[in-house]
């Protein structure tokens, strides 16, 4: 099944986000081998060159490492994965806050709403 990709944004950026997400979510464990470019491209239903570009970018950021023996693996630097996760979370929150403000909510209203939704677990 091909990945669900937006049609109006560059594909490479979406692939990058998607794989980042999978690493952060633990679908690819630290130190785990990542499938070949061809396989990933075939799964995603995208051009192998584009997939290559996305993986190169991940390598540049250090989240993925190329090993001579086993190909591409996820970094074992847990700190880096955590950092990436926090980064992604922050992006989500920023986006959420922006939309809520568009709906006319102030910061305090939003926190109150969240508390309410989660049954007061938020402190």
């Amino acid at each position: 099944m091909a990945w669900n990709l937006d049609s109006d944004r560059p594909i490479y950026a979406q692939l990058l986000e998607r794989i980042q997400m999978q690493i952060v979510a633990g679908i690819y464990q630290p130190g785990e081998k990542i499938p070949s470019v061809r396989e990933l491209a075939a799964d995603a239903g995208v051009n192998p060159n584009t997939m290559q570009k996305a993986l190169s970018e991940l390598e540049r950021s250090g989240l993925v490492i190329t090993q001579r023996t086993s190909g591409r693996v996820v970094t074992e630097d847990l700190e880096m994965i955590k950092e990436t996760r926090n980064q992604l979370a922050k992006e989500q929150i920023d986006e959420f806050m922006k939309r809520m403000r568009n709906l006319g909510f102030e910061k305090e209203d939003i926190i109150a709403l969240l508390k309410n939704e989660t049954g007061g677990e938020l402190s």
Binding site: S7, D8, R9, P10, I11, Y12, T50
Partner: peptide
């Protein structure tokens, strides 16, 4: 290139 179209035109090749 497809990426150029998406970046410059901000839309899919199809549209």
């Amino acid at each position: 290139t497809v990426e150029d179209i998406r970046m410059i035109q901000g839309k899919s090749v199809d549209s």
